[in-house]
Nucleic acid binder design. Structure first.
Lengths: 243, 243
DNA sequence: CGTAGTCTTGATGTGGGTCAAGTTGCGTGG
DNA sequence: CCACGCAACTTGACCCACATCAAGACTACG
């Protein structure tokens, strides 16, 4: 049994569990199985297993075989593309319900890393693909989720190509407030370090830091410790984000 | 009958044709119908129609209903996201075989514009979605193509966030040589203006122009008129692209 | 309470943007 | 076929947002 989803490092720190049934699953309305009927769910339930990853741990490594796919039950996963010379860009942030791993693709293209402590609902990739082929609801839902990710990636292309540093940081916070782990809350805890935010926005640590303090000075946000961010007005934040 | 794929402008300049049969289609191995069996192809053949768009013409407009989807038979289509203040970013370039329009989505999110003269093989969206649901081969192929587009979008995120202007321009040329209309050729005609290249790379016209002349001075490419580019060594070009 | 990692703040440098002329290429009409 | 006019492109001078370099300060964790 492989210890990570692919052939990643740190096998010893991975915990595997088989506890929560699909009917009491916290992500059943958002995950790839959201539209599956009871029969399909029974099959999924039988072959799934839960697995925990500690913050910082690799889930998949670029270029390695991806033998597993997993649905995020809890936590945040980052997808990173790193060049030979060390330059790194986060090309996707995944939240609860999102799928980690590449069904229908033998190799991982990006590193998938736990940005927080993470719990995945894991399937063997080959087995999951059989189910995709056999269950129209599952394949249809996977297609829907892939289309959403494509839209998100294209919106991020606009951000990376055309927005200023201030707009980038504001956009990131607005995105977190909209679809992050504490979606809808007026105060949230950043799931990423400054370095990770910089890697996601195509900036440096220093610029992210400066823009955060500037947004706070301007009253668009409040800062509470290193991770705490308050959002007094989503409208003002959206304006600062430039859309 | 709508004149463009959505409710876009310039209805008078759109030509509709119904000539080429699926069995003699130039994109039958690359398009969304590539894996369809003869029965499915017969249905597609019966409901398709060819349509021509002149260079610069809008095919879909962001925010408008997308009543049609079409497979590119010939030409290049650009997807553009434009902010309220006029900043624009090309978030996708589509070539022969690629699908224009958004199956399973009622609205277009980006402007789709003919970057060259274009011929599409067009279907009504509602009808196409019925077929997607009824034809596993078709849905599977559409999923494959969407996954490929997602990968391309993520690679472009790295380019936009981390590459230098020189690397961006070199990457663009390398991408064109690899998957553009004249894929594989050592000399190619740019399907985009400097302004469009700039919008695709998150740069300005001036910077694109300067980097092209610099790449030519360094012997990485040759320039022949405004549109002609020669690639003496793909290896050297790939090195200049930073990957 | 020490220390290592993370973050902030300041001083300085620079890649690419902006502004402003020119130049080239090309479609149009004489 | 040529001359005109305009759009597309190039080139140069200057500028600025963000990167880089360099201290410090905060926080977490032993």
């Amino acid at each position: 049994m492989p210890a990570t989803l692919g052939t990643g490092p740190d096998p010893r720190r991975v915990a595997a569990r088989r506890d929560v049934g699909c009917t009491s699953c916290p992500i059943q309305t958002k995950a790839v199985c959201a539209h599956s009927d009871p029969d399909e769910l029974r099959v999924l339930d039988a072959i799934k297993s839960y697995r925990d990853y500690a913050i910082g741990q690799d889930i998949l490594a670029a270029g390695m075989a991806s033998e597993m796919v997993g649905s995020i039950v809890r936590g945040v996963v980052k997808l990173t593309k790193t060049a030979a010379d060390g330059r790194a860009q986060i090309v996707g942030l995944l939240f609860a319900g999102d799928l980690v791993g590449r069904p229908m693709r033998p190799l991982a293209l990006y590193d998938a890393t736990a940005a927080t402590d993470v719990t995945l609902c894991v399937f063997r990739r080959a087995r999951f693909e059989e189910l995709l082929r056999a269950s129209p609801h599952l394949e249809r839902r996977f297609l829907e989720m892939t289309l959403d990710e494509l839209d998100a990636a294209r919106d991020w292309q606009f951000l990376l190509g055309r927005k200023t540093a201030r707009e980038k940081v504001a956009s990131f916070l607005e995105m977190l407030a909209r679809r992050g782990p504490q979606a809808g809350a007026v105060s949230l805890a950043l799931p990423l370090t400054r370095a990770e935010i910089a890697a996601y926005l195509g900036l440096t640590i220093e610029t992210v830091s400066r823009q955060l303090t500037r947004l706070a000075k301007d009253g668009v946000i409040t800062l509470d410790g290193l991770r705490g961010v308050g959002i007094p007005s989503v409208t003002a934040l959206r304006a600062a984000a430039g859309d």
